[in-house]
């Protein structure tokens, strides 16, 4: 995909970092919440707080927050939010590979459409 318009290497790098952090954060929270040994109520929170997943998720989100501000300061907002939609796809694909979540035909269609949309915006500005 050729970098066109406002997408400089720095913008592309921040965009990639945002995808990695968002997906990493979501998956870390999923791993924290899906731990079957965690129990219930306060014990569950104590269990999660004693393990790295919850903190990894929070860390990812804090850094992502700053990366997103930096990203948006360099490109038009309308372009930024459209390019950011790729996070939806990344999380679903990662969920499929790491947690064996099913990708039905409708989901695959959705993933392809969102990816196509992001590619159009990325290529054309």
């Amino acid at each position: 995909m050729p970098a066109a318009g406002s997408i400089t290497p720095l913008v592309a790098g921040l965009w990639l970092l945002n995808v990695v952090l968002d997906t990493g954060g979501q998956l870390a929270f999923k791993a924290a919440a899906g731990d079957e040994d965690a129990g219930d109520g306060l014990a569950r929170w104590k269990h999660m707080a004693a393990r790295p997943w919850l903190w990894l998720g929070i860390g990812c989100y804090v850094v992502e927050f700053l990366v997103w501000i930096a990203f948006l300061s360099l490109i038009p907002l309308s372009e930024g939010v459209l390019l950011g939609s790729i996070n939806i796809v990344a999380i679903m694909v990662a969920g499929r590979f790491l947690f064996g979540e099913q990708l039905t035909r409708l989901r695959v269609a959705g993933i392809l459409l969102v990816t196509l949309g992001v590619a159009i915006v990325g290529a054309g500005g």
């Binding site: 459209l82 939609s85 409708l106 989901r107 459409l113 969102v114 915006v121 290529a123 054309g124 500005g125």
Partner: peptide
Amino acid sequence: FGEQLTLPRVLGALAIVAGIVCL
């Protein structure tokens, strides 16, 4: 912000919205 609704943005948005509806 005085941004423009360029053709790629409009087309891209349409595909993304269609994808979100599918999901």
